[in-house]
Design a protein around this nucleic acid. Structure first.
Lengths: 199, 199
DNA sequence: AGTATCAGACCGACCGGTCGGTTTTCAAGG
DNA sequence: CCTTGAAAACCGACCGGTCGGTCTGATACT
């Protein structure tokens, strides 16, 4: 491996291990020392790539958590019948979630709940991302209205907002209980709600 | 003030200030030193009342957070027409929430999201409390079925679960965005959902 | 030779928790 | 009513350990 590739590789390794630690312990309780031990890299290497723990956290959010979520939801958004495709994806996602994922919850929401009240940098990044989800979802419902699959009288943005809140709430509940059944129950409730929006 | 009252008073003061700090910073990031400074009491006093930070945290949950929530939701549960009374209470609660409360979110859910994956003692306490809410809500819907206000074909426990998930999710979203409108939007979505359950 | 990329010893601040000592309380004995 | 003594309540200096971050070299590539 050439030098440039090795460099990028070390940066990536730090990001991914930091992501694991942050997901497991939260940002504040994540220790730089633990990241170094797990990665086998040195403090010098880390502080060469990232000027502070906070900027490392921002990078983890933008370069690990956000892309993860994006690839997960993309397939359901650009379809003529969003209610059907979202319901299918929802059931599939819940089915594919590992016990570990249920125990740890949604990375983006976890970070938001922990850091939003105490760090404006995190808050803005997370808020921007969630607004992005809202926009994409609302656009999907609007498309469904255009194709005649979704009731025209609904406020698509309100539905999108409620949808995200319900999902994040459901993941949080399942995380507390460490119980997949809770997630399935909430998913069915949410799908019931969506079916009520069908034209 | 007599001695016994002073004693109970100091304990209560520690609990309440600890509750504030935990709500603001999370449990792990809350410093014993800050609690002592704010309360004006000494480390000796604190460790006389609570053997460790962890047991202090448990006490805050059980003696501050849980009763707070209980008194907030009680009025809507023992009524013949739960959909109406819950909707009214929901709108009232959202209206009465201060900006501070929106910024900080739900104490019980915050603690659960932070501590459930890493401390079994917290997890069990929080899970027990949420199950209690579920039971009470489900019973309220069941009562509504008996009085003919709620569709008989719905699964009351599923509805109760979905309801809690949606509310907690909505509070979380509003906390991230620091935006009361988000909470209002989700509340209306939830009320729409509830109205769909009317007999 | 010069520069990017580390390696890790080191730093002060802060953490939760301990412990020896002091004050307060209160019941019992005179 | 007073004295006394032990227990309860409290104080805060102190402890070992961990934290995020800095800095001085060493190494390897260009």
């Amino acid at each position: 491996m050439n030098a440039a590739a090795q460099l990028a590789d070390n940066r990536r390794k730090l990001l991914e291990i930091a992501a694991e630690e942050i997901l497991e312990n939260g940002f504040q309780a994540t220790s730089i020392g633990d990241i170094l031990t797990k990665s086998g890299l040195s403090k010098g290497a880390l502080y060469h790539h990232f000027p502070s723990k906070l900027t490392l956290g921002y990078a983890v959010f933008e370069e690990v958590f956000v892309p993860e979520c994006a690839t997960r939801w993309e397939p359901a958004l650009n379809t003529p019948d969003p209610i059907t495709s979202i319901s299918i994806l929802l059931r599939a996602q819940v089915h594919e979630m590992t016990d570990e994922m249920i125990r740890l919850g949604c990375p983006v929401n976890n970070l938001g709940q922990e850091m939003s009240p105490i760090d404006e940098g995190f808050r803005q990044r997370i808020n921007r991302e969630i607004n992005h989800w809202r926009d994409e979802l609302a656009a999907a419902f609007k498309r469904g209205q255009a194709t005649g699959h979704v009731k025209t009288e609904i406020d698509t943005r309100q539905v999108a907002t409620f949808f995200i809140a319900s999902i994040e709430g459901a993941i949080g509940l399942a995380k507390n209980a460490q119980d997949r059944a809770l997630l399935e129950t909430c998913t069915e409730g949410l799908i019931n709600y969506l079916e009520g929006l069908r034209a």
